[in-house]
């Protein structure tokens, strides 16, 4: 099986986020990037499939600071081929990024044909979860998102489980090749000891791929006007006093709101 995982770095919200002088984007100088959590789950699911069915895992990561750590970590976990894809605008231009990724996959030697492309169902920069379906659409492949398990990978089909509200689950069969938006892998992403990552830094090679010229402008008719920081609403009430006093006031408040 030929499995491709598309991974992105997203802003690390542990750090303070600042808005750039253009008022429409995050200040990249202050930003620290972190691998997108659901992409990490997509990688885990791909590695589990490789362990179960054999094959190769190619990780394609969009260029960002510290992306080499992401790729070498993926190699230490069991990925076979590492590609850093340069020239794709990340951030809020999800549509442009998705289309550029699809075109890059087509143009880079040996990435396609693949049986499955796995990526996160969402990213904090893509809460709508548009990247994976747009990618699938560009390639003309079927897509399913919010996938939590791959039940069976056969020669021509894949059977996957998708989550619905209320604990309902649907089992779907898709024809290959297909794109999966992974919500969560079957088991938590594995920890890889740093010694193994260090070894991968020596043994593995990161290929650099250049995305084709941007062919897809942001969707016409939509323009970002302004990005705003959260406003402090000042509605919090601090309860002061000794613990017993605070507990008393808290009980009164809860009772007043009909919560007790």
């Amino acid at each position: 099986m030929n499995l491709v995982v598309l991974m992105r770095m997203v802003p690390d919200v542990v750090e303070e986020l600042e808005i750039a002088p253009d008022g429409k984007s995050l200040d990249r100088d202050l930003l620290r990037m972190i691998p997108s959590e659901s992409d990490d789950h997509a990688l885990e699911e791909a590695l589990l499939l490789k362990e179960r069915y054999g094959g190769r895992v190619t990780v394609l990561a969009l260029s960002a600071p510290e992306v080499a750590d992401l790729l070498y970590t993926a190699a230490a976990k069991g990925a076979d081929r590492l590609i850093e894809l340069r020239g794709v605008q990340t951030g809020l231009g999800v549509r442009a990024a998705a289309l550029a990724c699809a075109d890059a996959m087509t143009s880079l030697a040996g990435v396609l044909p693949a049986d499955l492309i796995l990526t996160g169902a969402q990213a904090i920069e893509d809460l709508d979860g548009l990247a994976a379906p747009l990618l699938a659409d560009r390639l003309g492949w079927p897509y399913l998102g919010v996938v939590t398990k791959v039940n069976e990978l056969a020669d021509r089909t894949v059977t996957v489980v998708k989550e619905f509200p209320g604990g309902f689950r649907g089992e779907f069969q898709m024809t290959l090749p297909a794109v999966l938006g992974i919500q969560a892998a079957e088991r938590p992403p594995r920890y890889v000891p740093v010694a193994k990552v260090r070894a991968a830094m020596k043994a593995a090679k990161i290929e650099v791929g250049q995305a084709p010229e941007p062919i897809a402008a942001p969707l016409a008719g939509i323009d970002l006007v302004e990005l705003c920081k959260p406003e402090a609403a000042g509605r919090a009430e601090m309860l002061e006093g000794a613990p017993e006093e605070v507990a008393g006031k808290l009980c009164e408040l809860l009772a007043a709101h009909g919560l007790l």
Binding site: P193, V194, A195, K196, V197, R198
Partner: peptide, 8 residues
């Protein structure tokens, strides 16, 4: 036993 992290 996470000696790689320690070394880093």
């Amino acid at each position: 036993g996470e000696t790689g992290l320690f070394d880093t």
